[in-house]
Design a protein around this nucleic acid. Structure first.
Lengths: 267, 267
DNA sequence: GACTGTGAATCTCTTCACAGCA
DNA sequence: TGCTGTGAAGAGATTCACAGTC
């Protein structure tokens, strides 16, 4: 399931906050999904919850980490150390547990030798060598689109079996290799799609029904995973197929703020 | 549909290459999806294909662009101009049509004033002003997690209705606001998950059935969107729910190629 | 003959509702 | 009483197969 990493993050935060047990409701709220999903997902890993109480944070944490294969550090090589590459290198270093970016590789001689975090950029020529040396199984491609397929081929040939592709190209790989694509332009376009549905082609400023617009300030105060970790919301949160999360006001709101003509009556 | 942007890119490439018509098969191959999906997706926008011939590239291009709301430029504000922010700024500028990153904003005084592409980084204080001035409807959050919710609240309060969130936090937004989350750590973990399934917890080098490992070189030659644009493959390509693309060898392979010089090893 | 458009079958994920335990 | 685990119902999305059109 693609939601496991999400739970993992929430649980990590909870554990750091000294929380020992979570209910599916709490976990769901903090992860931005429905309680039913949480229970189904977690039941697929086995029964690690206690009825009437909830889940033990530590146990769940270990269990999910194991399921995600994060128990043993995986070696990652990152090809293309531009801005995106730098950003990812930082991410991999600080946030992601279970990974070690063992090498940064770039075709540009000017970038070779640069130190990013604890790693020094090496020339692409050493790609195969690095992969063999460090038993790399995951490759991240942050090169321009034109170079992506070639890099991909070399990664695969050298033994990499999973690829995270940030280049805007469809990669061809042989059987047994998994590719995951992240396309920043596509992300924007998907948002644009939903924007277009909200505001049909009328360039003028015309909010759907003059409700939740500029006048109102945020509903939720700064209650982000701060001390408690649980985001207390009663709204209906639906995740679309394309990954966009949409919120719909529900009765019994935490606090209706003031004038909320949003859903009409309901009062 | 979340695949429209993909088609859009392929079609753009095709159009640049002077191609006038595409069949669903060709388009599917180039986009890395099944022909059936292409036809279903495109039929949802209306009938723009000609039976026996295919789709007219230009027409389809316009149609999809319209559906995605890319006809009128949308103003985007990007908050947090670190490495990721820089990368995105570049993306938005060169690749994405239909968007204009009208402002870059950062809390760090050292970064304010810096010129990225054609835009100059402004202080966060001017966030609301910028949004009002340029009628911004889409906000991109590239700040650290701790600042994300606060930034989000300000964006929403100022009138932004779609948010692309790169910070590793679940954002709370009021009704009517769409959030799309991209989490780089999660991407890696999802790959790790699939890696773990391939190689159950045995650190030793032991390929599932000694087939498609390092010995074999790339299947596809350098046939990336070069002249033709269509990637000719007969393999079975399945996209998992979590976005990972998995390839399965099918009978009747195009041509197993032999030893591609690129990588020395392969013995 | 080639290729689109689409209803029907299939599959997968989500949601509901409730039985089973602490 | 509170919350997990789960079968069953529901909702989408994908795939199949073929009729319809050029």
């Amino acid at each position: 399931m693609a939601r496991l990493p999400l739970y993992l993050r929430v649980l990590t935060t909870l554990a750091e906050g000294g929380v020992h047990t979570v209910s599916s409701d709490t976990l769901a709220a903090a992860a931005g999904v429905t309680p039913a999903k949480v229970r189904k997902d977690l039941s697929h890993l086995g029964s690690y919850g206690t009825r009437g109480v909830g889940y033990e944070v530590d146990v769940l944490l270990d269990c999910i980490a194991a399921k995600l294969g994060l128990t043993e550090d995986r070696s990652v090589v990152l090809v293309g150390v531009g801005n995106l590459g730098h950003a990812l290198a930082g991410y991999g270093g600080s946030h992601a547990r279970g990974f070690r970016i063992v090498a940064l590789v770039d075709a540009d001689p000017d970038r070779v030798g640069e130190r990013v975090g604890a790693v020094i950029v090496r020339p692409v020529d050493e790609l195969e060598q690095v992969i063999a040396e460090c038993a790399v199984t995951i490759g991240v491609i942050c090169t321009p689109a034109a170079a992506a397929q070639q890099v991909c081929d070399r990664l695969v040939a050298a033994g990499v079996t999973s690829i995270l592709n940030f280049a805007p190209t469809v990669l061809s790989v042989p059987e047994g290799v998994d590719v995951r694509k992240v396309d920043l332009a596509v992300e924007l376009q998907i948002l644009s799609f939903h924007e277009a549905r909200k505001r049909p082609p009328s360039p003028r400023e015309a909010p759907p029904n003059g409700s939740t617009q500029a006048g109102e300030t945020s509903l939720v105060a700064g209650t982000t995973t701060g001390t408690d970790g649980a985001t207390p919301r009663t709204d209906r949160v639906r995740t679309e197929t394309d990954g966009v999360v949409r919120v719909t006001r529900q009765a019994g709101q935490t606090r209706p703020v003031q004038a909320v003509p949003a859903e009409g009556g309901a009062s």
